[in-house]
Design a protein around this nucleic acid. Structure first.
Lengths: 152, 152
DNA sequence: TGGGGCATTATGGGCGTCAACGGGAACAGG
DNA sequence: CCTGTTCCCGTTGACGCCCATAATGCCCCA
């Protein structure tokens, strides 16, 4: 399997390190990522983590904009400046910098969530909250289909 | 890696020097920049820093303007006259001149922000403010997509 | 089918290296 | 002579490399 799937919660040690789940490490290796890049999610207290190809999509998008307008600058700021490298040590661990803790609220434990071509890291409590909200929204959608009728 | 990515905050010492992050120095060397050029950003309290190819971008833009109008003259002044050279000393540090401090508000610490082909220097507090604004603007964009559609 | 042993993972900690930083001294220019 | 700059050194703290250990899962074989 070459996609990031499933999820796991691991503990941060005294040095601020946390093990990336073995399954994710295998995917990283299979995809040939030499280093990981973590991006602050726009509207969530989470980081998107993946290879540098994570940036390709954003850069293609930026190329469509007038480089002297605000939008292009904001996009570049977001994808080039609002991210950080995550180096896997040889035991497969990454260190949680203040930059990441600030945005995610992570302190003692990290939740890893597969998202296909990348994965996310969350503070476990906030992930649970967000998951509940996401499910609630999906229920809303379902109820938005014809009332009393089964949506499938 | 040959692009300026990620960010860092470093302290200014008593002599007005500050270390350029090691990762950025590596990019500078890889790109073969013999000296760095810093440009005052137009509408932000930041400096754009990069090789002399940084000017190419602006010069192309100026070429599109009518040379008899004020705009072209203003742009030329901005990109040719409103910049300064930054010399890396042999420990990889640069000196923060009054010219830079005045425009950026930098006093005790410097935030370095990767922007792909160049990087920026900011006063950390102002960077945080600007970052929040940029993120808010990008979210506006996202909300402009069709309702119910997945924005990513 | 159950048990023992091997492999792998998560986690903790010692230690060396290097980047960031502070400061002395040589040096140049006005 | 004084000021600011450049070179060079030492210190410190963070991070990467290495090893150890405990827990878990897996496989093979009796």
């Amino acid at each position: 399997m070459d996609r990031f799937l499933s999820n796991a919660v691991n503990r941060i040690d005294a040095k601020g390190r946390v093990s990336v789940p073995a399954h994710f490490r295998a995917v990283v290796q299979k995809r040939g990522y030499s280093e990981l890049y973590a991006l602050r999610c726009l509207d969530r207290p989470a980081m998107d983590v993946g290879g540098l190809d994570l940036l390709d999509r954003y850069e293609q998008r930026i190329a469509q904009e007038d480089p002297f307008l605000q939008t292009a600058d904001d996009m570049s700021f977001f994808c080039h400046g609002d991210g950080t490298f995550l180096k896997l040590d040889q035991d497969g661990r990454i260190t949680m910098s203040d930059f990441i803790r600030e945005h995610t609220g992570i302190s003692a434990e990290v939740a890893f969530v597969g998202r296909g071509n990348f994965f996310q890291i969350w503070e476990p409590g906030r992930l649970a909250t967000y998951g509940a909200e996401a499910r609630a929204r999906l229920l809303q959608l379902r109820q938005g289909t014809k009332p009393g009728e089964r949506p499938e």
